[in-house]
Simulated assay, not measured.
Amino acid sequence: MAFSLTAIVNKYKESHPDVKEWVEFTAGEGTRQKTFRYHHPIYMTNEEGRRLARIQADPDASTSDLVRGFLGDDQYEEFAKAGGQDTAVLMLVQLVQERDLPDMSVKDAEGK
């Protein structure tokens, strides 16, 4: 039996309507506060996934490199100017994954 990846992703999206395409967060205080975003893992593109995999495989990559991988160059520069903390973004990424992705192995009301 072949699994349909499209069906799996669509079922997840259908059963998790509160999961949005983008994870948004703010960084900075006062007039420096800005909103930033990255793709929720279920919406991440292949290009984004490959970029993050390359960074994670690089033994010389820093925390900043990884956060830049999630945000992209332009957003990361603004994030740094706003005084954002790289480790806080990585904590957010972990929290979102723990909150949203374990449910993929739980059966729905129909037992699917």
Rank of each mutant, 00 (worst) to 15 (best):
R37M: 06
S105A: 14
M91E: 12
R68G: 03
L90V: 06
L52A: 03
P17V: 05
P41H: 10
R68I: 12
T87E: 07
L101W: 08
G69F: 03
D73M: 08
E78F: 04
V93G: 01
S64P: 03
D74Y: 08
R54Q: 15
A61I: 01
Q33P: 07
E110W: 09
V67I: 09
G49V: 00
K13N: 07
A7P: 01
Y43G: 00
V93I: 14
K20Y: 00
T87V: 12
L90F: 06
A109F: 09
M104A: 01
V9G: 02
A88N: 10
D58T: 02
E78S: 06
E77Y: 05
V96A: 06
A61E: 03
D18W: 02
D103R: 13
W22R: 11
G111K: 05
Q56P: 00
G30W: 04
R32P: 02
D86F: 02
P102C: 09
A7V: 04
W22L: 12
R51K: 15
T35C: 04
G69S: 12
R50Y: 11
T26M: 02
H39T: 09
V106A: 15
L66Y: 05
P59E: 07
F79E: 03
M1Y: 05
K13T: 10
Y38V: 04
E98P: 07
T45K: 08
S105T: 13
Y76V: 03
S15M: 04
A53E: 13
L5D: 10
A53H: 10
R37Y: 11
A2N: 07
F79V: 02
N46C: 13
M1I: 01
E98Q: 14
V96C: 01
F3K: 15
E47P: 05
I8K: 12
T6E: 12
R54H: 15
S15Y: 10
A57D: 13
W22N: 07
F36Q: 00
L101D: 01
R68L: 15
R37F: 10
D100S: 09
G111V: 11
N10D: 14
A7S: 13
T45L: 12
Y43W: 11
A88F: 05
D65F: 09
Q33D: 02
A57Y: 04
P41A: 12
E48I: 05
H40G: 11
N46V: 13
G72H: 06
L101E: 04
D73E: 12
D18C: 07
P102H: 08
M1A: 05
T87P: 04
F25V: 03
T26A: 03
I42L: 13
Y43D: 10
P59A: 08
G49S: 06
A7L: 11
T63S: 14
S62T: 15
E24W: 00
D60E: 12
K34H: 07
A53K: 14
T6R: 15
K107W: 13
V23L: 06
T31F: 09
L66M: 15
D60H: 09
N46Y: 07
R32T: 03
F79N: 02
L52V: 14
R51W: 06
R37W: 05
I8A: 14
T35N: 10
T6F: 04
N10Y: 09
K34A: 15
H40F: 10
L101P: 02
D86V: 04
Q56I: 06
A109S: 12
F3A: 07
D73R: 10
R68T: 13
L71H: 03
A27V: 06
M44L: 01
D103N: 14
